[in-house]
Amino acid sequence: MSLKFNVGDLTIHRIVEEEGKFLPALDMLPGLTPDVLAENRAWMKAAGALDDSDTLILAFQSYVVKTPHHTILIDSCIGNDKPRPGRPSWDMKADDTYLRSLAAAGFSVGDIDFVMCTHLHVDHVGWNTRLENGRWVPTFPNARYVFDKTEFDYWTETNAKTEVGPFVDSVLPVVEAKRAEIVRNDFAIGDHTRILPTPGHTPGHVAFAFGRGKDDAVFSGDLMHSPIQTRYPELSPKFDVDPAQAAKTRRDFLEHYCDTATLCCTAHFPSPSSGRIKRKGNGFVCETA
């Protein structure tokens, strides 16, 4: 399993925190029927995306991208010491897997220049902060943290009504430490990094495109969770705020990158998690690079 690959003048590292069984496919994807699952069971199992009990297998990971000028971490996974009662394996987690994986890739927390979040769900912001003397402090002390304004405003409003734990312990402390950049869709880092709006999973969900003058790699976040969604882009998971919009965004994204050289790096597809989008019938496939 490769955790490091090169495309254009980028070097990309996968920092895997967890990979394994998540939720039953028919539960997570309400539009998926038993017949369609049966038709796709064999290739999904062969791809390591489905187990014998029809449970989806997902990865939870960050990507570290080295451009000629910066070291950028995309999505900061689950985190330690955080109350997550809805997901027992994440609740008050206290292991060294993530930081050990980061070190194995050759990085310390001080090496990261930017942390860029595709959205602000629990498993994409967890390592934004760490517990130090009873306080949440930014894990990456030298980094600027990039949050989309639409996304940040949505969770600010939601949190004002009912407290959202991951927003309180993994986003607001970064803002209070004055390490946050609340950005719009025209945000870029030099000539290598751009925002691509991909709403639907959350209102301000974004993807990130990397490459000088062209998209050598794109990081899709939770635009799609499982390879079956490339074959059937209309399948939206139960976590999507706007399933119809998410389905349209997903198809538009896949159509845009179909049969191009752009490497699509997904947040949750099982290893190797990345590939190039090819057309297959009325859908698509993410072919392993």
Rank of each mutant, 00 (worst) to 15 (best):
T158V: 15
F187L: 03
N185R: 11
H192R: 10
F187R: 09
R184P: 05
A177D: 05
G200Q: 05
D191S: 12
D153H: 06
A177G: 00
H192K: 09
F167Y: 14
G190L: 02
R194E: 07
T158F: 11
K161H: 10
L172D: 04
G190Y: 14
P199W: 05
A188K: 10
K161C: 12
T198E: 12
A180E: 01
D186G: 15
V171E: 05
Y154F: 15
E151M: 13
T193A: 10
N159K: 09
G165I: 15
D148N: 15
T162C: 02
T150H: 08
D148V: 09
V183N: 10
Y154S: 14
N185K: 12
I182T: 03
E151C: 04
H192I: 12
W155L: 15
E176G: 04
N159E: 08
N185T: 11
A160Y: 00
D191Y: 00
E163Y: 06
A160W: 02
E176W: 02
K178I: 04
E163M: 13
N185Q: 06
A188Q: 11
F187S: 05
I195Y: 01
T198R: 10
V171T: 01
A180R: 00
F147L: 10
V175M: 06
R179L: 01
R184G: 13
F147Q: 11
D191K: 13
R179E: 05
D191H: 10
A177C: 02
R184M: 06
Y154E: 14
V164W: 08
A180V: 00
W155I: 15
P166C: 03
E163N: 08
V164I: 13
A188F: 06
E157S: 15
K149M: 13
N159I: 07
V175S: 03
T202R: 10
V183S: 11
N159P: 07
S170T: 09
I189G: 02
V171S: 06
F147D: 05
I182R: 02
T193L: 15
V171W: 00
T150K: 12
E181H: 08
E157K: 14
H192M: 14
V168I: 03
G165N: 15
L172N: 05
N159R: 00
F187K: 04
D169Q: 11
D186H: 00
T198P: 05
W155F: 11
W155C: 12
T158E: 13
D186W: 01
S170R: 05
V171D: 06
R194N: 01
R179P: 07
P199C: 01
P173F: 09
F187A: 04
E157T: 08
V183P: 09
K178D: 14
K149F: 00
A188T: 15
A160S: 14
F187E: 10
S170Q: 12
R194Q: 04
R179C: 02
L172G: 03
P197T: 03
N185H: 15
